[in-house]
Write a protein that binds this DNA or RNA. Sequence first.
DNA 1: AACGATTTTGAAAGAATTTGCAAGATTTGT
DNA 2: ACAAATCTTGCAAATTCTTTCAAAATCGTT
Lengths: 266, 266
Amino acid sequence: MQPEERQKRIETYLQQVEFASLEELADEVDASHSTIRRDLTVLEAAGILRRTHGGARLLSPRSDEFIFSARDTHQLEEKEAIGAACAGIIPASQSVIIDAGTTAYHVARHLEEKRPQIITNSLPVANLYASANLVEVVLSGGVIYPRLGVLVGPLAVETFSRMHADVAVMGAGGIAPEGITNSHGLLIEIQRAMMAAARQVIFCFDHTKFGRRSLMPLCPVEDVDVVVTDAAAPAELIEELRRRGLKVIVAPAAGEKQDSRQPQVP
Amino acid sequence: MQPEERQKRIETYLQQVEFASLEELADEVDASHSTIRRDLTVLEAAGILRRTHGGARLLSPRSDEFIFSARDTHQLEEKEAIGAACAGIIPASQSVIIDAGTTAYHVARHLEEKRPQIITNSLPVANLYASANLVEVVLSGGVIYPRLGVLVGPLAVETFSRMHADVAVMGAGGIAPEGITNSHGLLIEIQRAMMAAARQVIFCFDHTKFGRRSLMPLCPVEDVDVVVTDAAAPAELIEELRRRGLKVIVAPAAGEKQDSRQPQVP
DNA sequence: AACGATTTTGAAAGAATTTGCAAGATTTGT
DNA sequence: ACAAATCTTGCAAATTCTTTCAAAATCGTT
């Protein structure tokens, strides 16, 4: 096998495992230790990876995958159902503000056919459509909050306070009769700006969020137009929300028509 | 069989497999090794593929210099060397504006140990440090320009025109005695705002950019403080730039291994 | 058709690169 | 601090590349 092909295979293998021992790589591409060492030297000089004692580590691991998208296997099916249901009530060609967070991310994934104009402070959402020409994405400015991939700070707040959009798709840490709460103080201000900028405010909550109170109060439930949740949400709370003037949409349970598309990684 | 037909078949075969050995190609088009070698030389000169020891590799069909791809092997080694050299002249803990584009991206990759505050409109750069706590990244707002992963538009311009930074690390389409040029009109305005916001302006060019003129004029060379390039850049142009008051840094050629370890300060 | 000129092809010899191995130096873990 | 593992360096063998040259094919002109 030729050197370049072998190096390419080493690289792609490392993209799957991030770390690999010398033995492992020698076995993978079927070459001697010396050859692998030499390849690693080349790849390190090219900035692809960094050598370690006993192997190598990929330097820039899969850039478009954030911690949360791996972590969010919790209530994944429910969030998918909520995402589809929420996308269903949004008309085509609207300008849509997408909140950061896993739930809103799943809504964004279902919006492609609606050709929306998306306005967001979420890097994962931005990456989702970064290479698609169909969807126009406006990203707010701001400082990247590391593990979440959210843009925060005054720049982000200002962007939204000067925007006007048709819909805002939001998520939060909890919803209770006293109001909606969220855990990250940094996000509160941005979320309020998002809600103020949109004509219609949609909140998405999976059933675990009902009756829960996070650290910081975000807003009373009256500020919300629509709530989208899944079939396991407590009926009495849904009833109360409806009494107080909110439209509540319950996404059908898993097994119903579902789009199992994966986020594309170019 | 005619030479052109054979070369076309080599090309289409490579589009299926990406890598191919000499033996493989000789077998595929039924010609001797010598003939294949000659064909590969022709095809390499035409920019279709790249010869390797033992065969050939198809290089990315889209050779447009502004399509962003971190894996683009076009002048990869040179860009890596430039990235390392440029990062070397940036002091620690500075606020650094990073331009969009592949060359500036490679600089950003080498900045991790400097613990900089990075300000950028490049999604790839943002993703690079999105999950790292060591580097603070400020992303400008803007509309995502799909294939480039760049944030453009008034929001982006405004972000930079209100910022102040220590250094700006820039890239462009070409540098000639008449000035620096770039091909995308959308980027020009943003780049000017970047340069105005920084105390020191560093431009990175691989050697292919020297003497080149792109569509849009960006600025005269006098607006630049430092130029970083690789060893293959034409000496007389470097000399002229120096005469005109610019500091020119030539990164050591590929293969020169330089010590990437930083002195430890406890 | 036929002839000479140009190009293309295939093969062989020498140069360059790559590969695998082994000895000595360095790092890691207990 | 010592033992085990890993890394670097130097070297010979194998592979691959370039150069050179003669045979074959192609082409334009009689």
